[in-house]
Simulated assay, not measured.
Amino acid sequence: MEKHKEDGHQEENYQEENQIPEAVTPEVARKKWFGRGIYGSKDVPIRLLDGLIATFIIAIVAMVFYFTMNGGYTVTFHTFGGSEVASQKHRYGELAAEPYVPIKPGYQFEYWYQEEEPNMIWNFSVNKIGGDLTLYAHWVPAKILVKFDLNGGTTTEGMEVLEPKEVVFNETYGELPTPVKERATFSGWEYSGAIITADSTVWMTGEHVLKAVWNE
């Protein structure tokens, strides 16, 4: 009797140890591969979502690094023949730094404007960077002071000094004074060997002196 019980236990242990596992059905495999939880109510491949999330995070980090290293957007300054102004790098929403005033012979700088539209004045204290930007210099012809050397003559009132005259670069001189001198005839005004008349165009870019020419 005892031997029979032992044989029975041995047979049960043998069956448990050598039990054939249940067949893994497609539904069971799907449950192991798919999951729910933080991914919502629909079944989704966990590994795929993990990969997408990791890729998204890496992309964001790469973008932050890129814009940190490269400054984001470029601000370029076009001076139309004036002195060069260095470009700037800024991130979105920042204010551009107002550069030094450029120089252009014969012209006076007024302001920077946007998109080749002179009425779109760029305000460095208000306007913010929203992308790559080109700013253009707005110039006006410079006002130039002209002095007169009477070269021994006087004004018609007998004064030995004439008041300076303000002219505009690239425009005509306009009316010029006529001095007088004893025993001499006034022939005109001269600058650097050239005769200057009321119709002459101002080509000097700065203050200059016209000298009286006499026919004695």
Score class of each variant (00 low, 15 high):
residue 72 G to M: 11
residue 156 T to W: 10
residue 130 G to T: 14
residue 104 K to A: 03
residue 107 Y to C: 04
residue 87 S to Q: 14
residue 76 T to S: 15
residue 158 G to A: 03
residue 187 S to L: 15
residue 168 V to P: 13
residue 111 Y to H: 14
residue 103 I to W: 08
residue 143 K to R: 10
residue 61 V to K: 00
residue 72 G to H: 09
residue 89 K to C: 00
residue 92 Y to N: 13
residue 58 I to A: 15
residue 116 E to Q: 15
residue 151 N to P: 01
residue 58 I to Q: 02
residue 179 P to V: 07
residue 146 V to A: 09
residue 181 K to G: 03
residue 151 N to G: 03
residue 198 A to M: 02
residue 196 I to S: 05
residue 70 N to A: 05
residue 66 Y to A: 14
residue 201 T to M: 12
residue 168 V to S: 14
residue 160 E to P: 06
residue 164 P to F: 08
residue 99 P to K: 12
residue 96 A to F: 01
residue 64 V to L: 14
residue 110 E to W: 04
residue 90 H to T: 01
residue 10 Q to E: 13
residue 149 D to I: 02
residue 153 G to D: 07
residue 100 Y to R: 09
residue 107 Y to V: 12
residue 90 H to I: 06
residue 52 L to P: 01
residue 66 Y to K: 05
residue 45 P to V: 12
residue 139 W to K: 10
residue 72 G to S: 09
residue 211 K to C: 01
residue 189 W to G: 04
residue 52 L to H: 10
residue 21 P to M: 05
residue 66 Y to R: 04
residue 31 K to E: 13
residue 9 H to D: 10
residue 63 M to P: 00
residue 51 G to R: 01
residue 176 L to H: 05
residue 84 E to H: 07
residue 50 D to F: 07
residue 66 Y to N: 10
residue 110 E to Y: 07
residue 105 P to V: 04
residue 147 K to C: 06
residue 180 V to M: 10
residue 207 E to W: 06
residue 115 E to W: 07
residue 25 T to W: 05
residue 54 A to Q: 01
residue 120 M to V: 13
residue 119 N to Q: 06
residue 176 L to D: 05
residue 81 G to A: 05
residue 38 I to V: 04
residue 56 F to R: 01
residue 115 E to H: 12
residue 183 R to C: 06
residue 165 K to D: 06
residue 28 V to K: 12
residue 77 F to S: 08
residue 83 S to C: 02
residue 89 K to A: 13
residue 140 V to Q: 12
residue 101 V to H: 15
residue 162 L to K: 00
residue 9 H to G: 04
residue 149 D to K: 03
residue 142 A to M: 07
residue 77 F to Q: 05
